[in-house]
């Protein structure tokens, strides 16, 4: 266990950063608005992992009080991320409603086509 632990903690952070950067790449590089919102979701979820990873204590258990356990993982990041998840789905719904309106107005949800139309008019 102790041999592998340094590798594990770095692996956790490295994966988190990979997910974050992948989300950022999708948001910048892809023109489709639904795909952009999915990329934003990936970015957001990687932040959840970034918050939750330091809260874990290796010998600890989930923060539910029980006489059989003494060490509990940190409950505070869990509370913050619960809030973040729910707010995240609210903003996702708002973004998708905007996408539906854009699709009604322009007949497309590809950013490049919308920009091209703006230059023509």
């Amino acid at each position: 266990m102790s041999q592998l632990t340094p590798l594990i903690d770095h692996f956790n952070y490295f994966t988190t950063i990979f997910l974050m950067v992948a989300g950022l790449y999708i948001v910048i590089a892809r023109g489709n608005m639904i795909k952009k919102l999915v990329g934003l979701g990936l970015f957001q979820t990687s932040v959840y992992l970034l918050y939750l990873t330091p809260g874990k204590i290796v010998e600890g258990t989930a923060p539910i009080i029980d006489p059989r356990f003494q060490v509990y993982s940190n409950p505070l990041p869990h509370v913050l991320i619960l809030t973040a998840i729910v707010v995240g789905v609210a903003t996702l719904a708002l973004g998708l409603a905007l996408v539906v309106r854009i699709s009604e107005e322009y007949g497309t949800i590809e950013e490049d086509e919308i920009f091209a139309r703006g230059e023509d008019e």
């Binding site: 959840y48 939750l52 989930a62 923060p63 539910i64 993982s73 991320i81 619960l82 998840i85």
Partner: peptide, 8 residues
């Protein structure tokens, strides 16, 4: 779940 955040 593995990092003890069961509610999340």
């Amino acid at each position: 779940i593995l990092i003890d955040a069961v509610d999340v």
